[in-house]
Write a protein that binds this DNA or RNA. Structure first.
Lengths: 214, 214
DNA sequence: GGTGCCTGTTACTTGCGGTAACACCAGTCT
DNA sequence: AGACTGGTGTTACCGCAAGTAACAGGCACC
């Protein structure tokens, strides 16, 4: 008895939570990450305390919101990353998937990259090394795992894979961010340039004038 | 007459400004980027309106603060980047310089990477593509310029250099951020791993089990 | 019919960014 | 001397957002 009823309540609570999240989504995508809790509550047709009961604080709401989008994006990326294709093709497909996503919904992207807004003034010694958006961390770890699973990197390969995972994700992120702001070239060109970088063209390029000493 | 007196006043104002910036620096480095204007004013021994007269608003103060540190870091990086050495050595030296800087003063680093705190709720259409800290942009452009000056990349080389500049900076940043948080290896190992990545070891590595199809 | 319990409200506190208005203290001009 | 000006400093306030009581109805359950 108790269990069935509790289940009912939980279901209703979960549905409510989803509704609230969708309302929050609309507001954040419309007003940016600085949307106030009042605005979100109004969009959902309710008032603030309900939001706080469901999500604890603003950070909780934003975390829940971010998780949805992050999961969705990570699913797309995993698909591109695990495709049965040549390594270079897979890399290009992954880069393109990411860039297409941020191009299609830059507001979602901007929201996801925001460093959580958290870190209350009470955090003594304040959290060094946790500025990156959780999305970046998760993408880095994910990529690291794929690299380690599929490539033979010899001894110390696991650590190498993690460095590379985070490094490549950072490269993708920074280049994508810059590209989104300036649009200096097509997406395909950007993908190609980045893949070329990863393929060692930096090392292979010739010097411009004299020797490397000048 | 007028000029000399105005110069005097300007000098005194500049000195005051430097004092205020130093006080702000202490507070920000102690309390993190969420330091309040009240706290900064108190540290400087004065009250808020003076800060506002000197810097306009909080964004202005933070921008001025960030510029000092950014300029200093960029100077170090330029030195490593322009050293008369082998390309690989230069790359490693630059990576190491950056990592040493963020390792030595993580709070400064954390502050610099903060996306300006700006973007008032009034910005309709809200500023997509300007999230990255100004430091990242400047480092990216700087590196792009060096790459373009010194490497022969054939046609389209300028654009390629810019993509690479921002991409490499992003790689360095993300890997450094992750490394600072987890400390999974020594700085030298990290530098070596990243340089290896840029040197094409990703493309050169063998597959782990079967062909690339699985 | 009382007892929890969830959902919802209004009304409040606290703290921050930012500003207006006033006060003091040089020198300067007449 | 005495009014005028410009910079430095103050207190006291506004508006707004996060977060929190404290209270009010609906609905199951004993």
């Amino acid at each position: 008895m108790d269990t069935t009823q509790r289940t009912d309540q939980q279901r209703s609570a979960d549905r409510r939570r989803r509704e609230l999240l969708e309302a929050a989504d609309r507001v954040v995508l419309r007003d940016g990450p600085h949307a106030s809790m009042n605005a979100i509550a109004a969009e959902a047709g309710i008032t603030k305390p309900i939001l706080y009961r469901h999500f604890g604080d603003k950070g909780g709401l934003y975390a829940a919101l971010a998780k949805r989008h992050t999961d969705a994006l990570l699913d797309s990326l995993r698909a591109a990353l695990d495709a049965p294709a040549d390594r270079r093709e897979r890399v290009e497909a992954t880069l393109d998937t990411y860039l297409a996503a941020i191009e299609a919904r830059p507001q979602v992207y901007r929201f996801l990259m925001h460093p959580a807004e958290g870190s209350q003034p009470g955090d003594q010694g304040f959290d060094v090394g946790k500025h990156s958006a959780p999305l970046l961390r998760r993408m880095g770890e994910e990529l690291a795992q794929v690299i380690e699973e599929r490539l033979d990197l010899g001894p110390g390969g696991q650590q190498l894979a993690r460095v590379w995972g985070h490094g490549i994700v950072g490269m993708m992120h920074a280049a994508g961010d810059w590209w989104l702001g300036e649009r200096p070239c097509s997406r395909a060109e950007l993908v190609r340039s980045l893949a070329d970088l990863l393929w060692g063209r930096l090392a292979a390029a010739g010097d411009r004038v004299g020797g490397p000493g000048f």
